[in-house]
Design a binder for these strands. Structure first.
Length: 238
DNA sequence: AATAGGCACAACCGCCTCACA
DNA sequence: ATGTGAGGCGGTTGTGCCTAT
């Protein structure tokens, strides 16, 4: 027979994660590592399915996550990789240590797509929209010389300025990196009794919710956790 | 000040692949 | 050899925040 089901979906919590849930999951994984996602919620005392825990860890709690907006260089690299790999976000994300596929996918859908369209490029083919339409649909349309000139201008602009400046967008990004929710989380995290006995967790929690601090990954690397001690974890619990 | 619309992103859904029993 | 579940992935949705009116 196959394996046991990951969750029975009865009485499981859905929707946004609370600080307390984050702490429980983080606490469990930092102390025990990841053996089997199906067991994680049960052992960590969470009313979530393993899949949800995995996603939360990978996309938000992982200590090696790079926080803050993607840089222009990263954005250019995404465009380049997308032209080669298509919508294979996990493959693209593999080129960006600390970035998640979800993050890159979201960034693509919300920003880069628009930017390419603005430049007159088809986000799917990375070719000028008119050319791409002709190839895709086999519809021969007469493109006005004015339009061609406009596209050429945009392409020239793209060559000289790989990433256009979007003052409003940048402002939003700056605002978002210091969002109130993160600050609230920081306050709650630092005052939580849950981590009073763990310097590592306290440091990690503080850094995670405060992207402005320098290199939280260093703290993680320097943490005293020894993963090899938890190889027999499942045996101990079951 | 209130509200509508847009935006960004976290989370969910459903499918696919592979490993396990 | 085969059926089933876990994990992984990409697409989509929901929600909260921000901005413009």
């Amino acid at each position: 027979m196959g394996r046991q089901p990951c969750c029975d979906k009865i009485g499981l919590k859905r929707g946004p994660w609370t600080i307390e849930e984050d702490h429980k999951l983080m606490n469990f994984i930092l102390n025990n590592g990841i053996q089997c996602w199906r067991l994680v919620p049960k052992l960590a005392g969470l009313m979530r399915c393993g899949k949800s825990c995995r996603l939360r860890w990978i996309n938000y709690l992982r200590p090696d996550l790079k926080r803050g907006a993607l840089t222009e260089a990263e954005e250019d690299m995404i465009i380049k990789l997308h032209s080669q790999l298509g919508n294979r976000w996990s493959k693209i994300a593999a080129h960006f240590p600390g970035r998640t596929d979800n993050e890159i996918k979201n960034h693509w859908n919300t920003r880069i797509k628009k930017k390419l369209k603005f430049l007159g490029l088809d986000p799917l083919t990375h070719k000028p929209i008119e050319q791409s339409d002709l190839e895709n649909d086999n519809i021969k349309q007469q493109v006005s010389s004015d339009k061609k000139e406009e596209i050429n201008e945009k392409l020239k602009l793209q060559e000289t300025l790989p990433c256009l400046d979007y003052p409003q967008e940048q402002k939003k990004i700056q605002n978002s990196t210091s969002s109130s929710s993160l600050n609230e989380s920081l306050e709650m995290g630092s005052s939580s009794e849950m981590f009073q006995n763990s310097d590592t967790l306290e440091t990690f929690s503080r850094d995670m919710y405060n992207p402005g601090l320098e290199d939280p990954f260093q703290n993680w690397i320097g943490s005293p956790i020894r993963w090899d001690l938890f190889d027999n974890l499942e045996d101990n619990f079951l």
